[in-house]
């Protein structure tokens, strides 16, 4: 999934010419459990302009999904502590009343889930699940809502859409289910799309089709997209910018081309090195990052990546790594830049 250099450069210039659609700063999310407080997200800043696509890249447990869910307050409210500024499409999400929050979800910002086999209600027809959402957000009749569902099915190119509207989720293939999920998430013309690993549960060939569809829809509809993934190839394919997360922090962020070719943070470099390069390096051992991600309930002082870092210094274990500007939009949190 590597792209020619020129197209990468082109895309980062093209995007991001409008108003700020997502403005997150100093976001902290903690979950209370028996062990105490699990600090899932620690001081995340994200800014996206209209029509921009950001890939949030990280291992499982790095806080990328929690960050995404915080944008529509989907994390369990009584079990989590959220602080920081979250403004999406000009609305301050943190102070929204519960009813207004429900209008906001699906209407202004909607979400695509990792496994459409789990995210669609198994005992409702997919067409009804879309119509239900349309009727919830727009004052339309059942017939009109069904018509809208059919339009959407055609838009996401589900073959024989009329018949498929009456299917139950288990009667569709994985790829078709994810197309239906995409249709569902776009049913009420949202401005911001939150995609939580939408291709991870799919076959490799289907993955590409879904990515191409998402990119096409994003361009046609001018959507602002945050795309959570652990797959660098996927990030390169869809995103204008990449933000790499580790232990609930963004450790490096910048335009795709700069992060891929000019990565500076040891964790990003490690991730890039772990990629399998098709047949090119056949016979060579796959590189890995030694160690495991830290326990988020008891984070060590200093840089959370220090225990696994190959360029670790004494000060890494003492001070919070500073934010270093590497380019106009390229930043990282690491002492190496200072």
């Amino acid at each position: 999934m590597r792209m020619p250099t020129t197209e990468l450069a082109e895309r980062s210039v093209m995007a991001g010419d409008g108003a700020t659609m997502v403005d997150v700063s100093g976001l902290n999310v903690g979950f209370k459990n028996a062990k105490g407080l699990v600090r899932a997200v620690n001081g995340v800043d994200l800014q996206l302009k209209r029509g921009e696509v950001l890939a949030l890249l990280g291992e499982s447990g790095s806080g990328k999904s929690v960050t995404l869910r915080a944008l529509i307050r989907l994390n369990p409210e009584h079990k989590s502590i959220v602080s920081g500024r979250i403004v999406v499409a000009g609305t301050d999400v943190t102070t929204l009343a519960p009813e207004a929050m429900q209008d906001f979800r699906g209407g202004v910002a909607s979400m695509i889930f990792q496994d459409p086999g789990l995210a669609l209600d198994p005992v409702y027809r997919v067409g009804d699940q879309i119509a239900e959402t349309v009727m919830r957000h727009k004052k339309v009749s059942r017939q009109e809502a069904r018509k809208r569902a059919l339009e959407l099915f055609e838009r996401v190119r589900i073959p024989s859409p009329e018949r498929r509207l009456d299917a139950y989720p288990h009667e569709l293939s994985g790829g078709m289910r994810q197309r239906a999920m995409i249709a569902l998430s776009l049913s009420c013309d949202p401005q911001v799309l939150l995609a939580d690993e939408p291709t991870t549960a799919l076959d490799a060939t289907v993955q590409i089709q879904i990515l191409l569809l998402l990119r096409e829809l994003q361009r046609d509809l001018g959507l602002t997209v945050i795309f959570v993934t652990h797959d660098i190839g996927v990030a390169v394919e869809v995103a204008d910018r990449i933000a790499v997360m580790y232990a609930g922090r963004i450790v490096e962020t910048g335009p795709v081309a700069e992060v891929i070719r000019g990565a500076r943070h040891p964790y990003t470099l490690g991730l890039l090195a772990t990629r399998a390069h098709g047949g090119r390096l056949q016979g060579r051992r796959l590189r890995t990052i030694p160690g495991n991600p830290p326990d988020l309930a008891s984070l060590p002082p200093g840089c959370p990546f220090a225990p696994r870092c190959s360029s670790v210094e004494a000060r890494c274990r003492e001070i919070e790594p500073p934010l270093v500007e590497l380019g106009p939009a390229h930043r990282m949190r690491c002492v190496l830049g200072t």
């Binding site: 906001f104 979800r105 699906g106 889930f113 995210a119 209600d121 005992v123 409702y124 959402t133 569902l184």
Partner: peptide
Amino acid sequence: EFVQALRAKGLWHGQVMRHVAR
């Protein structure tokens, strides 16, 4: 997960509960 997905598409609490009951 589908319960979260139902909430993510903005359904009222009662509508979500109807799905759960079904």
